[in-house]
């Protein structure tokens, strides 16, 4: 070996925020997951357009729980964004607070959704509509659960003092998923709750 030189530019080492390959990986994962939801909603509209009216068979579902649910999820995204901003500036307490608030808001969403599910007069196997309703909201709920798990693990790791302003790519990556869960909910919400009211 002949050592020629030391490079004139210094380079960052290892996973730093968006320099981490995982950040790109998560974007790709979100892209394919978003496509999955697109196909789910395609199935909804395809079956709706081939069903005899009325669609939905029991009328448009009530907004009483869905609107608070949506607001709770959006709020959870905002708190997480705030928490991530905190660790970018080295404020660990802000990350902890953001994670805790988002966790609580996520749980609140699940509770609201659970109440809504319990109040439905039909089940998964009652009709085409009920199959769609429980499958699509169920898919979303599963994603919320995974998101909550991510937040919980991030909280644990923050507790271990793994993150600071230099090293927090796990946070940046996890947060993308959490925002994705919110955005997808808006699409699901529009499809199930708003679209039937437009017709």
């Amino acid at each position: 070996m002949t050592e020629i030189a030391i490079s004139s530019t210094t380079l960052p080492v290892g996973s730093k925020g968006r320099d981490a390959s995982g950040w790109w990986g998560m974007l790709a994962l979100v892209a394919t997951e978003a496509t999955l939801f697109a196909y789910l909603l395609f199935s909804y509209f395809y079956l709706a357009s081939h069903s005899p009216p009325p669609w939905p068979p029991n009328g448009a579902p009530s907004l009483t729980l869905a609107i608070p649910g949506s607001l709770v999820l959006i709020a959870g995204s905002v708190t997480m964004w705030w928490g991530e901003r905190g660790i970018e500036r080295g404020r660990r307490w802000q990350l902890v607070a953001g994670l805790l608030l988002s966790l609580l808001l996520g749980i609140a969403f699940i509770v609201l959704e659970g109440i809504e599910w319990a109040g439905k007069p039909y089940t998964l196997s009652s009709s085409v509509y009920s199959s769609l309703y429980f499958t699509i909201t169920g898919f979303h709920l599963a994603h919320v659960l995974v998101g909550l798990l991510i937040l919980a693990v991030l909280l644990l790791w923050t507790g271990f003092d793994y993150f600071d302003e230099n090293r927090h790519s796990a946070v940046s990556i996890g947060v993308i998923y959490w925002h994705f869960v919110t955005v997808v909910w808006l699409a699901v919400f529009f499809t199930f709750y708003i679209a039937p009211r437009l017709g």
Binding site: A28, A31, T32, E33, T35, L36, A38, Y39, L40, S43, L47, H50, S51, P52, L124, S125, S127, V128, S131, L132, T135
Partner: peptide, 30 residues
């Protein structure tokens, strides 16, 4: 990335139709 979800979903829906009683492809239920 954009194609595989379609088939995974289709097969999952088929499995649900077969084992969990959903009606995505079930002609008799619409």
């Amino acid at each position: 990335l954009f194609a595989v979800p379609a088939v995974s979903l289709a097969f999952l829906m088929l499995w649900m139709d077969r084992q969990l009683g959903t009606h995505f492809f079930d002609v008799s239920a619409g």
